[in-house]
Every structure is written in structure tokens, then in C-alpha cells.
């Protein structure tokens, strides 16, 4: 099964105090669930906006975005149901322990094996001995591991991560990066990561550099992209 997200001539801007601020224009790119992608660039350049457009959570001001699964077009909702998210601030529910935080999306779908699957993923991220601990009892790195497990537990086609190592120390960041990429490889999940970290960006198959309205493919091992600066 093959899933892709295609952007065709996509441009995006917003208005602030009656001033139009353009992020990018005429951007055409294709994201596949077989590869990993990073979006890098300085703060305020529009990385998160691009991530949101790719995830189907924001509509671009121009151009089109389509989501395909085996050549059939999917709706935004269907894409979200096939996606997982990893946040910089983890956003684990404080009243649930680690196991139940991971099981949450499965419970929501009424999966009877939610806890078993959650336990499996807890082991995958090396925290099976912390299953009963609440987020307040875990370190930052441990919380992010739990968040990663939560993102992958539903076997998504894509995982979108926004600065996943932003709140972590260097060593932990490396571990988390390693974990994320290995999970993606094992589960054949497309990974799109917004990051400041050069270390993290070098691990991805594709790296898109955003700066002052420009989106450039910095590393390209497979496929191509065209992006135009505004």
C-alpha cells in the first residue's frame, strides 16, 4: 500500500496588522510514506505552517494539496486518522499513566487490544518498567518516548513531529532521534519533522531548507522538488 501527500503550486501567507506576510509560493512537492523528511530553518520562517499544510490541518492560500492512498484520493479526516503527531511539549495527559497515555488513541477507536498494543510499544521505547508512572514522574526524555510510542501505536502512515527534541538535552535528543527514525523504518511510516537540529535533519532521506520565503531541497537522494522564493 502506498500513501502520498502532494503539494501543487502551493503558496501561503497571512495578514498581521493589515500587513501581508508571505511564507512561500509555488511550492510543489510530494511526500511518501516510504521516506523521512525534515523541514529546517530559522524561527518564524513558516516551518510549522508547512507542516500543518502537509498534515491537512491548514489550507494553503493558493495551490492544492491532495492525499492519496493506492491512487485513491483521501479526505483530510481520513489522513488524520492515518497520522500520528509528536509535539515539542509532549502533551501527555497528566491524569493517565504511561501505558494508558499510549493506549489512548486505540481506546478511542474501541480497540479491545489497546493495552496489549500499548505495552508492546512501551517496550519498544524501553519504558516497560515505567508503565504505571504518571507524566509528572517521568523525565523529559521519558515523556517524549511515551509520546513517540503514542504516535506509532495506531500504525499510522505518516508521523508529523514538531521540534520533538526542542525541550531535550543533547544526549537525550540523539536517543530520541534514533528512536523516531528506527520506528519509522520498522513500521514503514513516513516521517515529517520540523527541527532546528542539524543532527536530526541529517538523518532524514530528504531535507527541506526554509529561509526568507525560499524552500530548497538541501539533500536529495530520491526524487526531486521545485520551490520558489517569494
Amino acid at each position: 500500500m502506498s500513501n502520498t501527500i502532494s503539494l501543487a503550486n502551493v503558496g501561503h501567507h497571512f495578514k498581521l496588522n493589515k500587513q501581508k506576510i508571505s511564507l512561500f509560493d509555488n511550492l510543489t512537492m510530494k511526500i511518501s510514506d516510504k521516506h523521512s523528511y525534515t523541514i529546517v530553518g530559522p524561527s518564524g520562517v513558516g516551518k510549522s505552517s508547512l507542516l500543518l499544510i502537509l498534515a491537512g490541518l491548514e489550507t494553503p492560500t493558493s495551490g492544492s494539496v491532495s492525499f492519496e492512498c493506492n491512487d485513491s484520493t483521501l479526505s483530510n479526516l481520513a489522513l488524520r486518522q492515518k497520522s500520528g503527531f509528536i509535539f515539542q511539549q509532549f502533551h501527555l495527559l497528566p491524569e493517565l499513566d504511561a501505558l494508558n497515555n499510549i493506549a489512548l488513541p486505540l481506546k478511542l477507536k474501541g480497540d479491545k487490544l489497546a493495552l496489549d498494543k500499548a505495552l508492546f510499544w512501551l517496550k519498544q521505547v524501553g519504558l516497560e518498567y515505567r508503565s504505571k508512572h504518571k507524566p509528572s514522574e517521568l523525565s523529559g526524555g521519558e515523556q517524549q518516548r511515551v509520546a513517540i510510542a503514542r504516535a506509532f501505536v495506531t500504525e499510522p502512515s505518516f508521523v508529523f513531529a514538531d521540534e520533538p527534541t526542542g525541550n531535550l538535552d543533547e544526549q537525550t535528543a540523539i536517543e530520541i532521534t534514533e528512536l523516531m527514525f528506527s520506528c519509522c523504518k520498522v513500521n514503514q511510516t513516513g516521517l515529517v519533522v520540523v527541527t532546528h537540529s542539524q543532527e536530526l535533519s541529517s538523518r532524514a532521506d530528504y531535507c527541506y531548507q526554509m529561509s526568507k520565503g525560499k524552500v530548497e531541497l538541501v539533500e536529495n537522494t530520491i526524487g526531486s522538488v521545485t520551490g520558489v522564493a517569494v
Partner: peptide, 16 residues
């Protein structure tokens, strides 16, 4: 704040 996070997460899990 807790409710907002909860609702945001639910949306991220594919709920409407």
C-alpha cells in the same frame, strides 16, 4: 487548559 489539550489531542487522533 487541560480541556484544550485533550480536545487538541483528540483531533490529532483523527476525531472530528
Amino acid at each position: 487548559a487541560d480541556e484544550k489539550i485533550k480536545n487538541g489531542l483528540l483531533l490529532s487522533f483523527g476525531q472530528t
